[in-house]
């Protein structure tokens, strides 16, 4: 089956950030997103993100350029004050032309 090489950007963040995060991702060029509730523990401890609603894990399939822009934006606006983890992975996507 024909697949296209894309970047999968995953951002795990405090639930309060969900709305603004999705907004940012879309504005930077993501055509859609997948959101799941997440729970875990990291360097900031379990508590920081523990406003009601735990954490969210937002994933988008985008081109490498958009992926880089997303990471840059997250780095500039969120890392210093919020409990956020972000990473990208190389993925082979079916019907990938929809996302590039």
């Amino acid at each position: 089956m024909q697949t296209v090489s894309l970047k999968l950007v995953t951002v795990v963040a405090e639930a309060v950030l969900a709305e603004s995060l999705i907004d940012t991702l879309k504005r930077l060029g993501a055509s859609g997103y997948t959101l799941t509730e997440a729970r875990g523990e990291g360097s900031r401890g379990r508590r920081v993100g523990e406003l009601p609603g735990d954490n969210v894990r937002v994933e988008v399939l985008v081109s490498p350029t958009v992926a880089a822009q997303i990471l840059e934006r997250v780095n500039a606006t969120l890392f210093s004050n919020y409990a956020v983890v972000a990473w990208t992975s190389d993925v082979q996507v079916v019907r990938g032309e929809k996302y590039a």
Binding site: V16, L17, R47, V48, E50, N81
Partner: peptide
Amino acid sequence: APPAARMSLPTANPT
């Protein structure tokens, strides 16, 4: 208040 404070004053410590 907590989510409002978290968003408006991100440097404040939620603990």
